[in-house]
């Protein structure tokens, strides 16, 4: 059994069939690029793994566990989900980060503020970002913070939905290279050419 599996998925949105008899298997530590045209349900597909979209039919399994109402929390705790419009919790950046690492599933992670400031540098964010309010940051800054948060959570599966959209080319390249250097199962949703020819398996439907 593959690490991530979609079997015979059917999903309708307002009477429009998005998926019908859809199958996909992804191996552990595989890096996959979803680059189907707009409106084909790329985001819905990755949201299905988190139980945010529930298919009308079909089965999903993550790390050998079938996704159901009972297992959804366990499965969510294996996934780090970062999306373009990441709705980071409200508040001061350093507080928000500290709060996330106080959640039960994240308590085992040894989070330190110093690590965060290193990451700010890597992501070309000024150090004073820590003391700023999330609402006062630009979309691009929030995006990168969400990515840092995702990396620090150190979960097995990364779902990155258009995380580099809107960033400048140099930063994009840096981030993409960084992401792909990790030994994680990475699912990228993007139209960006920057992911091409980097050894990602392209999935189109």
């Amino acid at each position: 059994m593959a690490y991530l599996e979609f079997r015979n998925i059917q999903l309708k949105f307002d009477e429009r069939m998005i998926f019908s008899g859809f199958d996909l298997a992804i191996e552990r530590h595989e890096k996959v690029l979803f680059c189907a045209p707009s409106g084909r349900g790329k985001t819905s597909l990755v949201k299905m793994l988190l139980g945010f979209v529930v298919p009308d039919q079909g089965e999903i399994s993550v790390a050998g566990v079938a996704l159901t109402g009972e297992t959804v929390n366990r499965i969510r705790s294996k996934i780090c989900y970062v999306s373009q419009d990441a709705d980071l919790p409200k508040g001061i950046v350093s507080d928000v980060f500290a709060a996330v690492f106080k959640f039960q599933v994240n308590r085992h992670l040894n989070y330190q503020k110093a690590v965060l400031s290193d990451w700010l540098e890597t992501m070309c964010l000024p150090q004073d970002t820590l003391g700023k309010n999330i609402d006062a940051l630009s979309g691009g800054e929030r995006q990168r913070l969400a990515l840092i948060l995702g990396i620090l959570l150190d979960r097995d599966i990364w779902i990155l939905d258009e995380v580099t959209t809107g960033l400048d080319q140099a930063l994009k390249t840096k981030i993409v290279e960084l992401i792909l250097s990790y030994d994680k199962t990475v699912l990228v949703v993007s139209h960006d050419d920057i992911y091409q020819n980097r050894g990602l398996r392209e999935v189109i439907w």
Partner: peptide
Amino acid sequence: HYRLALSAN
């Protein structure tokens, strides 16, 4: 939803 993804609880 984002918080659910972060905490799973």
